[in-house]
Simulated scan of single mutants.
Amino acid sequence: MPTMNRRTLLGAAAATTAFTATAALSKPDLVPPALGMAGKSVLITGCSSGFGRLTAEDFARRGAKVFATMRNLPRQEAEELRQIAEDDGLDIHIIEIDVTSDEQVAAGVAEAERINGGALDVLINNAGISTAGPIEIQDMEATKLMFETNVFGPHRMMRAALPAMRAAKSGQIFNVTSQLGRVMLPGFGQYSPTKFALEAMSEQIAYELVQHNIDVTIIEPGGYPTKIWANANALTEKLLSRADPVHLDGYTAMVDQLRAGGNTGGDTDPADVPRAIAEIIAMPAGTRPLRKEVHPGAKPQMAINKVCAEVQVGWLGESPYGPWIRAVHHA
């Protein structure tokens, strides 16, 4: 068995949220014309940091009307983004949405649609969390929070945004999962189970929305240096502090390494994610990929994605669902 350390446990994990954006983003005059977003309305969850924060500013600089959502307003991150928007003349509207709240999701999406004057063009479900540690020590508090955020949150958001999108007969949904939504890393808690669930839900709804001319794309990042690592460490420490020794005692080496902490996600560029999403938005409707693997390094899920697409088409391609299946997989 390989030596357990924080890098072994977390090094291959995908960052799903959080990174305080400090790198310079593309200015409007540097945006390729084909990737401009003038006239597009985009709602993004989890914009306090990470991929969400980067995507909100980047897309606004591309000309989009951006609804940057985050929980626990007022907060410093919201004020910083609001100030950037004011200083640079960006069309950014900050709305409070905690994706674990039915009420906030419904109210937040309704407010975005009111400001927009109708259906959203793009919904990006980016908000997510992680708590590390073997499955046995994941108590119900940690497990429920992970599923509420990573699975039920995107479900709530899609249910809130889809009626108007369906009425408009257009729209795009991006669900940010992870390469760990297709492959598993021991010791990473309920992260893979939640991301596997989001992958399945995203693929199913992609088939169902073909008839409504709404595209769904699953974004599968690899590891990036975002704030998810610090957030995961904090959640993991809380879990370990309340865990029953009867569970902890079975994983002494792994738990010791989790307590040591240390990983930051490497030195890759988190802006890869908004760039990938922008490229897909620019594609003609009906031609966009179901899945997009995003990372400059290894992408072990690609073989799984290929086989699964072949299986779906082979199994259902000639069934009554065939037109939907083939449309999603471009088969």
Rank of each mutant, 00 (worst) to 15 (best):
E220M: 04
N213L: 04
A142M: 08
V176K: 02
A106Y: 07
P274R: 09
E310H: 06
A303W: 08
A18T: 00
P221F: 03
E77P: 12
I97T: 05
A197F: 08
A12C: 02
T45M: 13
A68L: 09
P320G: 11
V183H: 01
Q172P: 10
E148V: 02
D272T: 11
G266R: 00
A327Q: 15
W315A: 14
H155A: 12
G52V: 12
M254N: 06
L239K: 11
S178N: 00
Q312H: 13
A60K: 10
V42K: 03
T45K: 14
Q204A: 14
P33N: 14
T131V: 06
E148I: 06
D272H: 14
N125T: 06
L73G: 09
A160P: 00
A206I: 06
N213T: 01
R7W: 07
E111A: 11
S49V: 03
I97K: 02
S170K: 13
E237V: 13
L81G: 07
N305M: 10
M158K: 04
T143R: 07
Y224S: 02
S130T: 02
P134S: 07
E310C: 08
H93I: 14
A260P: 12
A282H: 01
R275A: 09
A282K: 06
Y224F: 15
Q204P: 09
F59D: 05
D98T: 11
D29V: 12
T55S: 15
A200G: 15
L239C: 11
M70P: 06
E77D: 15
L198S: 01
T236C: 05
G187F: 00
I325H: 03
A161R: 01
D29E: 15
N233A: 09
G36V: 10
F152Q: 05
V105W: 01
G297Y: 10
M70D: 06
T264K: 02
E148M: 04
E86F: 06
D267T: 12
G222F: 00
K195S: 03
A13Y: 00
P154E: 04
G286S: 07
S49L: 05
I205C: 04
G187P: 00
V294I: 14
T8I: 03
N5L: 13
T177R: 00
G222Q: 02
K144E: 13
A13G: 05
N126W: 09
M283N: 08
L185E: 13
